[in-house]
Amino acid sequence: MRRRALPAVALLLLAGCAGHQDDAKGKDTTLTVLAAASLTDVFKQAGAAYEKDHPGTRVNFSFAGSQELAAQVRQGAPADALVTADTRTMTDLAAQANTPTAIAKNRLTIATAPGNPKHVQALTDLARSDLKVVLAAPEVPVGRYSKKVLDQQHVTVKPVSQEPNVRAVLSKVSLGEADAGIVYVTDAAAAKDKVATVAVPDDQNAIATYPAATLKSTKHGTEATDFVKWLSSPEAQKILRSAGFQQP
């Protein structure tokens, strides 16, 4: 009986080994990309397009304010690439990130309730005592940009709250918890009819640059590098342009 059983066991072992080899060959690489909150909608679309063109690679995004992402990187969070909404944050992470590439630009707009019932017309209106204004915290890129443009116009705003990222500012306005807030053009566009916008003139505006870089701690260097390079490709740039981002 042993002579008959041994070949069967051997066959099972061989089959098991073959199965493990097939699983290894078919295993996907999952990239974790830390990305600025303002990229939430467009990167979900971009990630789907990338996965379609790169079978075997999955892209998982973690969205937050750039300052929160930087803290995660410094604390050793497992991730493969980083995209921030400003160059300062990326520069401060030179010890953890490889050389970055600018992939897009953005600019500010004023978001109000639909129909702009408070008749906000310009940055100077945000100082009005009858307005509840919400801004991003000054350590957040959009908060820093907002402070810059307000200071340049000598406008003093007393916000009802300072939020951790641009999406939180947008949410406060769209839910009616604030009358106005400063957000990126792309975030206001993503909100569609939930908010109205008041344009900030070019000579009063600020330009946000989005750099992307692989992290030195990545365990998927080749795949992470391919993804970051792809963000500058015509396909990725078309997706970013359609969402309202500007050329880098």
Rank of each mutant, 00 (worst) to 15 (best):
E51K: 07
K52F: 03
K52L: 07
K52P: 01
D53I: 13
H54E: 03
P55R: 02
T57R: 00
T57K: 00
T57S: 02
R58E: 06
V59M: 03
V59F: 04
N60S: 10
F61R: 05
F61H: 06
S62N: 13
A64R: 06
A64S: 12
G65D: 14
S66L: 07
L69F: 02
L69K: 02
A70T: 13
A70R: 10
A71Y: 14
Q72V: 04
V73E: 12
R74Y: 04
Q75P: 06
G76R: 08
A77S: 09
A77R: 09
A77K: 06
A77M: 12
P78D: 01
P78Q: 00
A79S: 09
A81W: 10
L82A: 01
L82D: 00
V83E: 15
T84R: 03
T84W: 04
T84E: 09
A85R: 12
A85T: 13
A85P: 01
D86A: 12
D86N: 14
T87A: 05
T87M: 05
R88M: 10
R88S: 13
M90L: 11
D92C: 05
A95R: 08
A95H: 09
Q96K: 06
Q96P: 00
N98R: 02
T99H: 00
P100G: 01
T101K: 13
A102L: 13
A102N: 10
I103K: 03
I103R: 03
K105M: 11
K105C: 09
N106F: 07
R107N: 13
R107K: 10
L108Q: 03
L108P: 04
T109P: 00
I110N: 01
A111W: 05
T112Y: 09
T112E: 08
T112V: 10
T112W: 08
A113K: 13
A113P: 08
P114R: 12
P114D: 13
P117M: 04
P117D: 07
K118S: 10
H119N: 14
H119K: 14
H119T: 11
V120L: 07
A122Q: 11
A122K: 08
L123T: 06
L123M: 09
L123G: 06
L123Q: 09
T124L: 02
T124E: 05
A127Q: 04
R128D: 11
R128T: 08
S129G: 02
L131G: 07
K132V: 01
K132F: 02
V133K: 06
V133P: 13
L135C: 15
A136D: 15
P138H: 14
P138E: 15
E139V: 11
E139W: 15
V140F: 06
P141W: 15
V142N: 12
G143M: 05
R144T: 14
S146R: 15
K148V: 15
K148L: 15
